[in-house]
Design a protein around this nucleic acid. Structure first.
Length: 546
RNA sequence: GCUCUCGUAGCUCAAAUGGAUAGAGCAACAGACUUCUAAUCUGUAGGUUAUAGGUUCGAGUCCUAUCGAGAGCGCCA
């Protein structure tokens, strides 16, 4: 919540304590028409003898704060609240300065996770969108944020590619990125079909783990090619990362880590493989029987790396929920191995399915590249308005790809539907952009849009919009607390829709009463600020015109 | 077989910590443009929250069972 409401919550903190209750006043969105917020957590005390006293004290404190109009109570114990727009006008700006974070955390966002040698495909979209949005949201409310792409630059997929190059006698230095992208599906096919190829790939994987110099050279040139291509793609899609670390960066920490774990009897040999001594079902496999490393091996080493070189309070892994068992094992291993007691959370999300509800395969050929989806969306928007600059169409395309993805709760599976992505009606990025452009143009058309505002003069539509704008902090808190951007995405639709009602209800340029005009301008400005900040939190770039 | 997630309007989804009359968008139907950008707005219709029990002042939300869907289950990541 913003400072204004947090201060009120703090000044209410003692009320429950008087009756030895460990509770805090909680504001919820009102479910009753005509009110902005409600307080529900007094209801359960309505049979107690201190109820009336408690209720009266709470009401008294709230009323003296001026944040709300006089509280309306009901017999059961609900408190109904309407925001005091006049007071809030002077105290809320909907900018970052409204949020002061006394308990700020340093959070690592581990997301993206592309594999080198493979182009980005539609399956990468959710981790990128959700990751970027959560990064921005936590940054906005004052947490220290760090993103790490956690590149898949090690292990079997890379070994497969190198094996393929070796077999076909292709010089790695002669490759370009598009050739490399074709090689990946071919090599993974060979790996499945051809026993000799599989054996050789496993050999190469192990040699790489043991730092074979010749293979490392090959690996390095593949990685460079791939990273450059990824960066080009991210520039188009507006993604960036603080750290471009990968699985390879922790490879050298693993032998020591394993030695220590063996020494402390945290892991034991089992048919040549190493398994954790933790009592779990299934048992946690730490290395393969040939000694080579697994997903969890590098992830564990990554914890040690980050602890030492970056430092953090929390790490959020934005990875799809099919990998929940892996993270369950990883997190319990961190504790069992006594690495640290820091917070680690798997921010899981639903599978991106195709139109018929079938999952896209990640390791097969024939998946849809993300760039292709971008192109299709771009063309679609250009057809609607081909007078726009390329850069604006590009931003609108990103808005569509981002917003359509974030409007749905991350936990539910997602049907990829081109029509839904490109729809320009309803809850879409285009609609939000359009609303904002309308507001900008309106302010441009007003000669003096910085005029002094003494009194708010409001009609019903004004009040509705203003209330919603002042609730920005409620929605950003919700999104940050649950790591769910869809609350903010939906909020963006709501304020956009209310703004459009506000805009259409009256010709603002024709208002001659100066108080009323000032009020309209104030609201429009606040809408613009809010909408821009919400877009920033979601990872969208506002356009100037459309 | 075991474990986990889920089941809300024709479709896609909301409803944090249990709270008052379960809300949006799309699609459908009816209306509003010589416009401060109609890529907009207004209205109508649509529900036994899978089913059956239970917990309590109160359940879409918690518990149990059943039915249905999806995912995962030591040598891929």
């Amino acid at each position: 919540m913003n400072n204004v409401i947090n201060n009120l919550i703090n000044s209410l903190a003692g009320e429950f304590k008087k009756y030895e209750l460990d509770e805090k006043i909680q504001f919820s969105l009102s479910k009753i028409g005509g009110y902005d917020l409600q307080i529900n957590n007094l209801v359960k005390h309505n049979k107690s003898d201190y109820f009336h006293e408690l209720q009266e004290n709470v009401i008294k404190t709230i009323n003296s704060s001026n944040i709300f109009l006089p509280v309306v109570k009901n017999d059961i114990g609900f408190l109904n609240l309407n925001l005091n727009h006049i007071y809030l006008m002077k105290n809320i700006t909907n900018t970052q300065s409204d949020f002061e974070n006394k308990n700020k955390s340093k959070i690592i966002f581990d997301y993206g996770g592309p594999n080198i040698g493979k182009p980005l495909h539609v399956g990468h979209m959710r981790t990128l969108n959700i990751g970027r949005s959560l990064y921005n949201i936590h940054s906005f409310i004052g947490n220290e944020v760090v993103s790490d792409i956690h590149l898949g630059d090690w292990g079997m997929p890379i070994a497969q590619i190198i094996t393929y190059l070796e077999k076909e006698a292709i010089e790695p230095q002669s490759l370009d990125s598009s050739q490399l992208e074709i090689i990946y599906p071919k090599s993974s096919e060979e790996y499945r079909q051809n026993k000799d190829f599989k054996t050789r790939a496993q050999e190469i994987n192990k040699l790489l783990n043991n730092n074979d110099q010749q293979l490392l050279k090959t690996w390095e040139s593949i990685k460079e090619l791939s990273v450059n291509s990824l960066k080009e793609n991210f520039a188009i899609l507006n993604h960036s990362f603080d750290y471009w670390l990968g699985e390879s960066d922790v490879n050298n920490l693993i032998p020591k880590m394993i030695d220590e774990l063996l020494k402390n009897e945290k892991i034991v040999y089992d048919d040549g493989a190493l398994i954790s001594e933790e009592d779990t079902d299934p048992k946690i496999l730490i290395t393969k029987s040939d000694g080579s490393y697994l997903y969890i091996t590098t992830d564990l080493a990554t914890i040690l790396f980050r602890q030492k070189n970056i430092g953090y309070d929390k790490t959020f892994y934005i990875v799809d929920n099919r990998q929940s068992l892996h993270f369950e094992q990883l997190f319990s291993s961190i504790k069992f191995f006594e690495f640290n007691n820091l917070e680690h959370e798997h921010i899981s999300y639903g599978t991106l399915n195709d139109r018929d509800g079938n999952p896209y395969k990640t390791r097969d050929g024939g998946t849809k590249p993300l760039s292709e989806l971008f192109e299709e969306t771009y063309k679609y928007i250009k057809e609607i308005n081909n007078a726009l600059d390329d850069s604006i169409i590009s931003q609108l395309t990103n808005s569509v790809l981002t917003y359509s993805d974030l409007i749905t709760n991350r936990k539910t599976d997602y049907k990829f539907d081109l029509e839904k992505f490109t729809n320009v009606n309803g809850k879409t990025g285009i609609y939000a952009q359009y609303s904002q452009v309308r507001a900008k143009k309106l302010l441009d058309n007003i000669e003096n849009n910085n005029n002094e505002l003494n009194n708010l003069t409001l009609n019903d539509v004004d009040k509705k919009l203003l209330s919603k704008l002042y609730l920005f902090s409620y929605f950003i808190e919700q999104s940050a607390l649950l790591n769910e951007p869809h609350h903010l995405a939906n909020y963006l639709y709501e304020i956009s829709n209310l703004f459009n009602q506000f805009y259409e209800s009256e010709k603002i340029l024709e208002i001659d009463n100066s108080d009323r005009l000032s009020s309209k301008i104030y609201i429009t400005n606040l809408f613009l600020t809010t909408s821009q900040n919400v877009m920033w939190c979601l990872g969208m770039t506002p356009v100037k015109k459309m």
